[in-house]
Amino acid sequence: MLDVVELHASHGRIPALHGISMTLARGETACLIGANGAGKTTTLRTIAGVHPADSGDIFLDGNNINRLPAHRRVREGISLVPEGRGVFAQLTVDENLRLGAYTRDSGIDEDRERVLELLPRIRERLGQQAGTLSGGEQQMLAIGRALLARPRLLLLDEPSMGLAPIVVEKVFEVIADVARSGVTILLVEQNAHLALEIADRAWVMESGRIALAGNAAALREDPRVREAYLGEAADG
């Protein structure tokens, strides 16, 4: 479904991505793990069209989307839930949700109802200003808003950031439910334990490059991953 080929990107004059390549099949959940500054967020933002690529190719279902601006990529089926959630604090929860469907003109109410079934806590707060929600509720709202675009590919950037462990568990339950519904997911997550547990496929990024790639379950057992990202002794 998604093919990234020799993707390069930079921040000003500072290179951030050094020719990364990855392939994600339809219906898979995949994760990017790595240290801060490894290029994970830049990868998601470049796929979504929010950050420009210097060179390389991005294909969605075989179609090259390099030249498409971000809003056109949303229409093609890519939704990004950014780091920090990015809800519109002064708007109500329901207004935030409906903004997710701004590219659409039909089936919105039905999809909104499905999202609210998935996120019952959000249903209880439809008339509330989004800025008054807890961090976990804002994260769920951001996911719900992205789903209202009816994505084929959902990009999630650090969904557990700043959340208490019990809230993180609930957020990842929602992500698992979304995956079971057939949406393809590419996840960036500092919590490597959670990311590798939920994912089918994984890539480890180091300094803007793919250092390791493979089946998530296999990478969980890789001694390099266990020592560097899971906090376990290599021979433990």
Results as ranks from 00 to 15, higher is better:
residue 53 A to C: 08
residue 15 P to Y: 13
residue 73 R to P: 06
residue 128 Q to R: 02
residue 200 D to C: 10
residue 83 E to T: 06
residue 91 L to R: 07
residue 140 M to W: 08
residue 38 A to E: 03
residue 142 A to C: 09
residue 156 L to G: 01
residue 14 I to M: 14
residue 130 A to H: 11
residue 227 E to K: 09
residue 153 L to F: 09
residue 101 A to C: 06
residue 184 T to C: 03
residue 226 R to H: 08
residue 230 L to I: 09
residue 61 D to S: 13
residue 110 E to M: 12
residue 3 D to H: 15
residue 218 A to R: 14
residue 143 I to V: 14
residue 135 G to Q: 05
residue 169 E to L: 10
residue 225 V to P: 03
residue 170 K to V: 11
residue 107 G to Q: 04
residue 85 R to A: 07
residue 157 D to W: 04
residue 203 W to N: 02
residue 117 E to Y: 08
residue 221 E to R: 14
residue 165 P to V: 13
residue 96 N to L: 00
residue 189 E to P: 02
residue 163 L to Q: 00
residue 90 Q to V: 07
residue 4 V to I: 15
residue 171 V to A: 01
residue 22 M to T: 10
residue 119 L to S: 05
residue 157 D to N: 00
residue 108 I to M: 05
residue 43 T to R: 04
residue 18 H to V: 12
residue 75 R to F: 05
residue 230 L to N: 06
residue 69 P to K: 02
residue 3 D to T: 15
residue 101 A to F: 00
residue 199 A to C: 04
residue 118 L to W: 05
residue 21 S to N: 12
residue 38 A to D: 00
residue 90 Q to F: 10
residue 96 N to Q: 01
residue 226 R to E: 10
residue 47 I to G: 00
residue 153 L to R: 03
residue 113 E to D: 15
residue 125 R to Y: 06
residue 21 S to E: 09
residue 67 R to E: 08
residue 164 A to R: 07
residue 205 M to P: 04
residue 151 P to V: 06
residue 20 I to A: 07
residue 35 A to P: 10
residue 16 A to R: 03
residue 179 A to K: 00
residue 69 P to W: 05
residue 136 G to R: 00
residue 148 L to W: 04
residue 38 A to P: 03
residue 153 L to M: 09
residue 76 E to N: 11
residue 93 V to M: 01
residue 80 L to Q: 00
residue 197 E to D: 15
residue 66 N to K: 14
residue 222 D to M: 08
residue 221 E to N: 11
residue 167 V to F: 06
residue 93 V to R: 01
residue 186 L to K: 01
residue 125 R to C: 00
residue 210 I to W: 03
residue 108 I to Q: 03
residue 99 L to S: 00
residue 210 I to N: 02
residue 163 L to F: 02
residue 49 G to V: 02
residue 147 L to F: 11
residue 136 G to A: 04
residue 169 E to Y: 11
residue 57 D to L: 14
residue 58 I to V: 15
residue 113 E to Y: 12
residue 12 G to W: 05
residue 176 A to D: 13
residue 231 G to K: 14
